[in-house]
Amino acid sequence: MSSGALAKPQMQGLLARRLRIHIVGAFAVSLGVAALYKFGVAGPRKKAYADFYRNYDSMKDFEEMRKAGTFQSAK
């Protein structure tokens, strides 16, 4: 059996090193989520609004609602 002393573990800088790794990871994840939201939610929503208002006739819609009795003041 050898009675040699074990090497001391490194205790300085552990928090800084782990924080650096986690900050880089958090930044990458946040960029990924932002890109997914932009292309998965905001883009299709913008396109849906543009498609809706491309052929939207507000006067025709108003007349349909008036005939259905939606408004009290417009007969």
Results as ranks from 00 to 15, higher is better:
R45P: 00
G4L: 08
G32A: 12
T70F: 03
F39Y: 12
K75I: 06
K8C: 08
I21R: 03
K60D: 08
F71S: 01
F71Q: 00
F62R: 02
G43V: 07
D57F: 13
I23V: 06
I21G: 02
G69V: 03
K75L: 13
S73D: 06
A7S: 09
R20I: 01
M11W: 02
K38T: 11
L19T: 02
A74R: 04
Q10S: 02
K38G: 03
G13T: 02
R17A: 15
A68E: 02
G25Q: 10
K60T: 13
L31I: 10
A42P: 00
L31F: 14
N55T: 10
D57Y: 10
Y49K: 03
A16I: 07
M59H: 11
F62T: 07
A68K: 00
L36V: 14
K8A: 15
P44S: 12
A7M: 04
A34N: 04
S2D: 08
A50F: 13
S3I: 01
P44M: 13
L36M: 04
G43I: 09
E64A: 14
S73W: 06
K38N: 05
K38I: 06
E64D: 09
G69Q: 00
D61C: 06
L15S: 09
D51E: 15
A34I: 11
Y53R: 02
L31G: 05
A34Y: 15
G32N: 05
S3D: 05
A28S: 14
M1C: 06
A48Y: 07
A74L: 12
A74Y: 13
K38D: 09
A74E: 05
K60V: 08
K38Y: 14
N55D: 15
K8H: 06
R20T: 13
L15E: 09
K46Q: 08
L14E: 04
G43P: 00
K75H: 13
F52D: 01
D51Q: 13
G69F: 09
R66V: 07
M1A: 11
A5T: 00
N55A: 11
M65A: 08
R17C: 04
A16P: 00
Y56D: 03
V29F: 15
Y56N: 02
L36P: 01
S73N: 07
R45A: 12
K46E: 12
R20D: 12
Y49L: 14
G40Y: 02
A34C: 11
V41Y: 09
Y53T: 03
G43Y: 10
